[in-house]
Write a protein that binds this DNA or RNA. Structure first.
Lengths: 103, 103
DNA sequence: CGTCGGAGGTTTGTTTCGTAAACTAGGTTC
DNA sequence: GAACCTAGTTTACGAAACAAACCTCCGACG
């Protein structure tokens, strides 16, 4: 019946709101630490810890742990792959949104 | 301190991949029935039924049930509110994506 | 009659998300 | 040195998403 009309697959690792938020910050800031992301994202400590763990395990972010003033500091940054996945996601969503009416 | 850098809230009723997919079809087609969406979306019958129920309960889609050739047919269409929510979502996501690098 | 198939759900069970609370491990304060 | 703070991690548990299997209604076929 002619209708291909296929909505493309969405990368759920990126799409998930909490992670998309975090990835967006990292994309804008290049690097950010746990405390900053905690305040900025509004996520709970536990959720932030888990989601960063997920992103790291999936290879989208790199984690650096060090001690500063005798206190732990965990810093995150996008990996090359993370950047690529985000860019691909951006294209996918742009395609979907473009199909939607009303600018 | 200057950093407002706030990523806007996402409408999860729309954002959720399965529902976003369904809403996109409805947006493009104006109306679609259960069987069509089943084939096009790749969702299971169960999930499709549940997600359409969610969307209907949230007031984003209107449901029409009738019998055609003595067989049931369920047709869905966006409501005015559904259209508005989708448009708002579109703007929100566009804002997020615009902040991301790499056009 | 019996049963096959299609439309539309509901039930069951797994996975993921999210919050809250407990826990770890060190530092500072009195 | 007991009480508290900071930075994270882990655990417990509920809600939602999802797939697969099963159930219902009804007309068609043999």
């Amino acid at each position: 019946m002619s209708d291909d009309l296929v909505v493309p697959e969405i990368d759920t690792m990126v799409h998930e709101p909490a992670r998309l938020r975090l990835l967006t910050y990292l994309s804008l800031l290049e690097r950010a630490d746990f405390v900053y992301l905690l305040g900025q994202s509004g996520l709970s400590k536990g959720n932030l810890s888990v989601q960063m763990g997920n992103l790291a395990e999936a290879g989208l972010v790199r984690v650096e742990k060090e001690f500063v003033n005798n206190r732990p500091r965990t810093t995150y940054a996008l990996t090359t792959e993370g950047r690529a996945r985000l860019a691909a996601y951006r294209r996918t969503l742009a395609a979907i949104l473009d199909a939607l009416p009303a600018g």
